[in-house]
Amino acid sequence: ILLSTVSPEQFVLTLLEAEPPNVLVSRPSKPFTEASMMMSLTKLADKELVHMIGWAKKIPGFVDLSLYDQVRLLESCWMEVLMIGLMWRSIDHPGKLIFAPDLVLDRDEGKCVEGILEIFDMLLAMTSRFRELKLQHKEYLCVKAMILLNSSEYAVASDRLSRSHDCLVPPCAVRPGPLTCFLFFVHSNKGMEHLLSMKCKNVVPVYDLLLEMLNAHTLRGQ
């Protein structure tokens, strides 16, 4: 895509086409235990991460970055991208978290897992805020792309990436205030710490891509 010739509408269309598919992770037939809920959530996250990489590669400008910068951006933002996706899926369902179409959790189910209720409440509160502000789908797409492009604590220098940024601004310019708020709402620290503690306590085995991403975050934090 020649970014200089792309209209904001076309850019939003590109983001729409980049959207990952819905991931399914069936709910266990028995009531949740701490281990089974964490297992469902980590399985889902691992599957979603694979799709997230495909999504990122379709964000204009991203693949022009060095592999090193691509890794750095994704390692910084993956939990926030998972969270905003969850919030968007849950926006029309007060009190529920739609992790997947077949994994809908009520707030109180968070009581199964030590420490997760606080995170569920935070996610539900952020989702209600999105609902109150009437977050539109195209705004969601733009905010999610911004989370990716803004995620590294180091400056990622790329002419194409800054032009991507410029393309993201017009669709969001209608309501810059609320959209800046959306960016501030999405914080992943608590979720990351919780997942790390669940892994350290051996409540759930964390493997594959999710393990890599969690380790990357942990190493950077030290």
Binding site: I53, G54, K57, L67, Q70, E75, L209, E212, N215, A216
Partner: peptide, 13 residues
Amino acid sequence: SHKLVQLLASTAE
């Protein structure tokens, strides 16, 4: 981050 790099480097979606 081996798998991440692998997935980023692969051209197939």
